[in-house]
Each structure stands twice: as C-alpha cells, then as structure tokens.
Design a protein around this nucleic acid. Structure first.
Lengths: 346, 346
DNA sequence: GAAACGCATGGGAGCGCTCCCATGCGTGTT
DNA sequence: AACACGCATGGGAGCGCTCCCATGCGTTTC
C-alpha cells in the first residue's frame, strides 16, 4: 500500500527517473508522458516520502519558530499568537511546514536546541525574542543555520525584521505636543529589551525636537504589566504632567485606573497614549489612543525574508538585511484630540 | 564536516552497527565499549540524521497540532495560546518535535492537509477544533493516522480529551441556586460547538435538578463575542431574571456593560457568572465569578494520550479513550456570594 | 574434552528518493 | 551519406541510517 516512486513508474510504464522528473518539474520530459504520469499521481494520490527526499537533497521544507521567552509573558500577550499567525500563513502559502519550539526552562534550552537543530530537520529558523542575551543567536550563527530575528538585533550580520518602535513612540509624543502639552511624562517598558529602549528613545527624540526638557521625574521604568502601570502612574503624578506616554496598552490601562482613582478626568485633566493597540485598548473608557504595530505583517515579513534566504543560499558573510515596518498612530479618546463622541471632533 | 555514524565508528574503532546500538540503547554492547563510544559522541557533538533514521524506522518523532479554526477566533481567544503551551511543553519533555498547522481558508485545507500528512512527516496529530463537521476527522480516520481530538467528539472510535463543560456549567448554576436564585437566565455559546451545547446542557441539568422551570425567554443564543453578550443581556432583561449564567467571560463582560447601563447593580440587582476564567475576568469591576478550565493541562493530557498511542501502536479499531478533565468554580464578586471586599465574606 | 550455546560485534542489504551518466533516437550539419 | 549534436529516457550509485544474519569467542554442559 505505501506507494513509491517505483510503483508509480510501473503503473505509468516509465522509469523511476522519469516520474522523479515529473515531480520535480524537470523540463526534459515529453509533454505527453508528463501528462500521463501526472494523472497517475493524481489518481493514486501519491506523495513522495519526505524523509527519503531530504536524505538526498538536504532540504526538509520545514522552518521553525523558536521562542525563548518565558512562558507567562508569552501567553498573556496577544503579540505571539498574532505573530504566529503571520508566520504560519506565509509559510503555508510557500508550501513550507512550520515547527514550533518553545524553550521553557533554561535547563531545557540546550537539549531542545540540539534536538531541533542538530537532527538536520530544519531548513531555517525564525527567532522571536527580544532578549539580546539569548544564547540561541550565537549557536545559530556558529551552526550556520539560516535565521531571521523578529526584533532589532545589533549585530550587523544578523537578518532581522522589526516594527518602528522609535518612530511610533516619537509620533505619539509629537501628537501630544501638537495638542499643546509640554509636561509629558513617560512610563517605559524594560530597557533590556530593544522595544522598551526604543520606545523611550522615540520619546526623547520627540521632546528634544521641540526643546522640551526631560527630567528624571518624568520617566518611570515599568515592565509592561498592569500593576507596574498603576504604581508608575502614581509616582509620575508627583511631577504633575499634563500627559503621559505609556509604552504598552496594558500598562496604560493600569495607569488609567490609578489616575481615575486619584480623581483625574481623562483626557481633560491628563492625556494618555499607549502602545500596541491590543484589543482591549478600544474597549476601555475612554478608548485608548495608541500606536498600532503590524504584528501579522511582522510575522509574514520575517517568514518571507527567511524563505528568500533559503532560496538564494547566500554566501556566508553576505550583508544581512534589516527591515523596519512602519507603526501607526490610532487616535481615540484618551489623548484629547478626538471628541468624546466617536466619529466626531466633539 | 557532516559527521555520520560511520565517522563515529571509525573514531571509536568500532563498527557502524555498534555505534548504532549505543545510540539506540541496545543492551548487547559491552559497558566499556559503550562508554567509549558515548564519549566520542559527546566530544564530537554528533547527532544522527533524522531523515535517514526515519527513512528506515518510519518514525519521525514529530507530532502536529492541527487547528482548523477560523483565524479571528483563534487569536482573540486566549484559549489557543495556553493549549499550545501545554502541548509544546509536554511534547518537548518527551523529546518529540511539534509542528503547527493552521488551516486558514477552506481552499487551503486540502492542499495543506496533503502536504502535512501525506509526506510521512508525522507520527501523530492533535486536532484542536470544536467543529464536528470538519472534514479533517474523516480524513485522519481514513488515512489511519493516530490522532487525538481536543474537545468532545461523538464517534466512539476517536480518542479525545475535553474539559467537563457540562459539570462546570451545572456547578455554576447550582451555585446561583444555592444563593437563592430561581429565575436564572443563560446566555449560550454557539450550539454547533460541543462546548456551547454542553454548557447549555449543564444549565438545564442544574435547573431540572431543582425543579426550576426553564422557559425560552430565559435562553439567549450568543456566539462568545462581547457584542453578543451585550445584545443578549438586553434581551434577557425582558424576562427579569435575578441571575444570568453566561457561557463565556468575554460575553459576560459585554453583559456586564449592558446591565450597568440599564442601571442595574451587580450582584445586588442581578448576579452574573461567566465561564473560562480568562485573565480579564478577575480585573473587571466587579470581579467575575466564573468556571475555570485547566487549559494547559488539557493540552498536556492530549499530548500524553497521543504519545501513549504512538508508543503502543494499538490494533486499529481498539477502544478509543476519552478523558474529561474537571472544571472548577472560581467565586468572585459578580455572583453575590463573596462580599465586595476581596478576601472577606462581606 | 567435544558439542552446544550465549553474547558481543561486524558487514550486507535496503528504506525511497535524487543525481549522474549512459543509451537511443531524431534532427541538423557538412 | 556520414557525422555530430540535442533531447528524452533508463538504470546505477549512494544519501545515513537500522535491521538481520553471520562470525568469533568464551562459557557451560554431559
């Protein structure tokens, strides 16, 4: 029952080689023969054995997503599911299969890495991580596995795709400045992560561009959690800002609660801008003005970059690509630019 | 540089077969020889070529998760990420690799299915879907691929793992009854999905067990979305219930908003119980009483079941297993049982 | 002390493919 | 008319493993 190339060849009255040529679209097969073989393949529902094939071609048509992130963060955040969707859809469209590897514990990492990479099962890897310190990068580089990083990575030789965190943050803060704010505070993410650091840079750039002073009391270092948004907002109030740029929506929602409890009206007393545009951002009261990042496109672009790498088999040491996708300011109520009546300026 | 079995054999001064025996833990290798070979393997960082191996063993040590769900639902819902985590962690722990397949469009399904399954790349499959009509089941059955369904599946011959939706719903409703409610309405999920139907069954069982009448105006058929929670609550108010059992937290939050707008206090004027225990459930005001399902364990259990299937290679037609995991009632404020001060009964 | 057995080890075959080279045929060249 | 050449096709080799069988040796048995 397990049909092989040879079997199809016998059925079609040709040789194994000819069937192989048909399957691999080799030009030198007579159209008539090709048609006949294709029909037999269709009728028998034959499909070449992947292992046998990759044993000789050294290609598996499988790529892997490696997520070395700690578990909790991973699954609270709507970021990864969307990224994963972008990646899957794209790899499927290109007839590649997708393997998913989470490195859960630090202990697991070495063993899992070896199993995943060492067995020759993979054509390439997408690394979704913001931690620059992860050992994975070094190992992949050393093992000469083609890979693409989602996020910014400082090493010039690494291919990466990121969203424009700096530009997005800058845009958000300049929007606040445009509304007349001058005392603008910021609630940052962890600066050990590129997006955390970048969003702060964007804030600084915008302030500097308009000669607005940035004092230490205008900056609170959070960690993207709602509770850090709450404590951050409380602390920032001491500097009596008229607006706060918050580096994530989840933190912004924490801030919102605290500010409300303090008796402040948003946006009349204090304006708020978030980052991410998670689904709750539009649902809270008042709806959150925020910076939207194209997460699905991020995954799709990373996948496309990886696949193009695989297709061209570039000489090692070739210039790596880095792609930055634009972010977009979504103006809702919390910044005070739009009116409280959706769709109008009132 | 690509090290092979033969290479290791030469380095160790033994034969290819002996090295193979060491790798596969075959007993008949002298302890001394075994140790020596193992050391060489460690030193050289050798790893057997997966494709070559599976060409002869017909095993790949790869399992796949197939999610035939439509995209939107998939990635709004925190269910899938958690499920995926349970699956990955477990398969990793058992040294299995995980492939992820989303069937996005109906058109894509056939082609993707063929690519995934037909190539012999997979040892087994976990299907995460609640739609009984999906063609995947039939194809998997027909192709004799070992698989496990996450969710209840009526066919006796199918292995499946589910959470106790009926019991959970029943528990929730009985809790409300215990608090003195008699006019209890319900806001259901889509009844084409087993969990939607099961949660309604649980409601009916609880009501019947206490001789409480269930009239049509006490039931609204929603679709798990927040907006259907809003319209559902509005409509159910006509029956003036004193409590509503809502089949999902997201819908419950929609209902919450509508009820508030109608001037009702929760839980004083109307009690509310949700289902799922998503992370926002604890964050809303008042915190939502809800039924928690062990999603990570669900994924882990499904994976373990599949792996045990693979290990035992049961005769086709052997009795399938169905495992039901218990759900748990999480009592918070919205039902009126706990007081408004967390941690106390006031 | 010879036959019988057990265990550790080596080498051949073959899994299902792709690739290369050899073959055969039709066409174009001189 | 003889040759070279191109293209379509067939078959051998081999990818890196596992499995089976053959071999050789030490130990038991009567």
């Amino acid at each position: 029952m397990p049909l092989t190339l040879e079997g199809i060849a016998k059925l079609a009255g040709v040789s194994r080689s000819t069937v192989s040529r048909v399957i691999n679209d080799h030009p030198s097969v007579r159209a008539e023969v090709r048609g006949h073989v294709q029909q037999i393949i269709r009728e028998t529902n034959y499909q070449p054995h992947a292992a046998a094939r990759s044993l000789v071609t050294h290609r598996t048509h499988i790529i892997s997503v490696i997520i070395p992130e700690s578990v909790t963060k991973l699954f609270t955040d709507p970021f990864f599911p969307l990224l994963l969707y972008g990646i899957t859809a794209t790899s499927n469209a290109h007839h590649y299969d997708l393997m998913l590897s989470l490195f859960n514990g630090p202990g697991e990492e070495g063993e899992t890495y070896r199993r995943i990479i060492g067995s020759g099962n993979l054509d390439g890897v997408i690394v979704a991580s913001a931690h620059l310190t992860d050992a994975v990068f070094l190992r992949l580089l050393q093992d000469k596995i083609p890979f693409v990083v989602v996020g910014r990575y400082p090493d010039e030789s690494v291919n990466c795709v990121d969203v424009d965190n700096i530009g997005g943050a800058r845009m958000a803060v300049e929007h606040l400045i445009g509304l007349g704010h001058t005392r603008i505070a910021t609630l940052t993410g962890p600066l050990t992560m590129t997006h955390g650091a970048d969003r702060l840079s964007g804030y600084r750039l915008a302030m500097a561009a308009h000669q607005l002073p940035v004092t230490d009391d205008l900056i609170f270092h959070g960690d993207y959690t709602e509770s850090s948004g709450m404590t951050g907002a409380k602390q920032l109030l001491a500097a009596s800002p008229t607006a706060i740029f918050v580096a994530s929506d989840v933190m912004a929602i924490g801030a919102l609660k605290t500010l409300r409890e303090a008796g402040l009206r948003i946006p009349q007393d204090i304006a708020l801008v978030g980052f991410d545009d998670v689904s709750i951002a539009a649902a809270v009261e008042p709806a959150l003005t925020t910076v939207r990042q194209p997460i699905i496109r991020l995954g799709a672009t990373a996948t496309e970059l990886l696949l193009s790498l695989l297709a061209s088999r570039p000489a090692a040491g070739a210039a790596a690509q880095r792609i930055i996708l634009p972010t977009e300011l979504v103006v809702r109520q919390s910044c005070g630019a739009a009116g409280m009546i959706p769709g109008t300026s009132l």
